[in-house]
């Protein structure tokens, strides 16, 4: 039988109301408050072995101590899944549920599930980190909210795929995947429905809600270019002909860096592009058209800038996701910082 532990606040833990909101965390064997209904919902799949109770004010004002204490309490417990709440529209309680779920997930690697009302601060703070079911605004919705949490918990415990956010009723986590619609309605019919609704001024739901665009501010100009160290990076796929880092030709997840110190030159036949999104003929014949090492060395000699970083960095841009690109940048940046690079030229294609 799988094992589940539930976190609740002082009120739902039946210690008391606002006057008891300062109580420190405690752990009890067995089920208290909502844990009883969770046990019923999960009957035959998992047992709710313990209930943890903590005052909302204590968690809010002594977060580090509260989290540390609870993580210690869990250290010797068997646990396949961790639940918190449901927290309804209680602001502090939603933040507490999110905080402890995130900490437990990170420390013990078990799935976590909670529930809050959309009007609470916990939703935006934690929805990308966990399954937060869309909960009611008052405690009379307890039965419904517990059931919704238990439904997702059951799938996680059984290792079954959890359905989409709209199917299961949780807040979207910023993760988008393709899936088959239950009604198998083809795109053409979805298009016509959406079009007619839009034309008639009726409400419609786009299948691609436009996320907020992550804009990077333009960096301030380099004050003294004559002394600056410059690095060359590219998403045009210029690599030594044997592609030693096996960078993919599209949807890249890999990058490489190649020595251009001293009098090294980029010659066709020694370097080439492995980018599959453009005609490679010109870049294969002369890799400098993408990574202009020849021109940079010339400009350095003329004193236009101070020095050239010893390596150029390569990945492939075509089909590469923004998240993978950001990850690769985070891996590359420490190398540039270590060599005190002042400015970068990033060549796209």
């Amino acid at each position: 039988m799988k094992k589940v532990i539930l976190y609740v606040n002082q009120f739902f833990g039946q210690i008391g109301g606002e006057e008891k909101a300062g109580v420190e965390p405690e752990i009890h064997e067995g089920q208290i408050g909502p844990a009883v209904q969770f046990a019923k919902e999960l009957d035959g799949i998992a047992e709710v072995t313990h209930t943890i109770i903590c005052g909302d004010n204590y968690m809010g004002s002594n977060t580090d101590a509260a989290v540390a204490a609870i993580l210690d309490m869990l250290a010797d417990k068997e646990m396949d899944l961790f639940l918190a709440g449901p927290a309804f529209q209680a602001g502090r309680y939603t933040v507490a549920c999110g905080t402890i779920c995130k900490a437990v997930k990170e420390r013990y690697g078990v799935p976590v599930v909670t529930s809050m009302n959309e009007e609470t601060p916990g939703v935006d703070m934690f929805k990308k980190d966990m399954y937060i079911l869309k909960g009611g605004n008052i405690a009379s919705k307890m039965r419904k909210d517990v059931k919704a949490m238990a439904n997702v918990a059951k799938k996680l415990l059984a290792g079954e795929p959890v359905g989409s956010a709209s199917e299961e009723g949780y807040f979207a986590r910023g993760i988008r995947h393709q899936a088959w619609r239950k009604d198998m309605k083809p795109a053409s019919e979805r298009m016509l429905d959406m079009l007619v609704r839009k034309l008639n001024g009726e409400p419609f739901v786009s299948e691609l809600p436009i996320p907020k665009i992550d804009r990077v501010p333009i960096a301030p100009a380099i004050v003294n270019l004559g002394e600056a160290r410059i690095a060359l990076l590219n998403t045009g796929g210029i690599v030594p002909v044997d592609n030693p880092d096996r960078i993919q030709s599209a949807s890249a997840t890999r990058w490489g860096r190649y020595d251009i110190s001293g009098d090294k030159e980029l010659r066709g036949g020694e370097y080439k592009t492995i980018h599959a999104g453009f005609d490679p003929a010109a870049a294969d014949a002369d890799p400098n058209v993408i990574t202009p090492v020849d021109a940079l060395k010339e400009l350095q000699k003329e004193g236009v800038f101070g020095s050239l970083h010893q390596y150029f960095y390569t990945t492939v841009g075509t089909g590469t996701t923004e998240s993978e690109a950001a990850r690769m940048a985070r891996e590359i940046i420490p190398h540039l910082e270590e060599d005190h690079v002042n400015g970068c030229i990033l060549v796209s294609t």
Partner: peptide, 13 residues
Amino acid sequence: QVVGWSPKQMMEF
């Protein structure tokens, strides 16, 4: 199947 066959849809998870 952007031409219209697609029973697949992108969904939020």
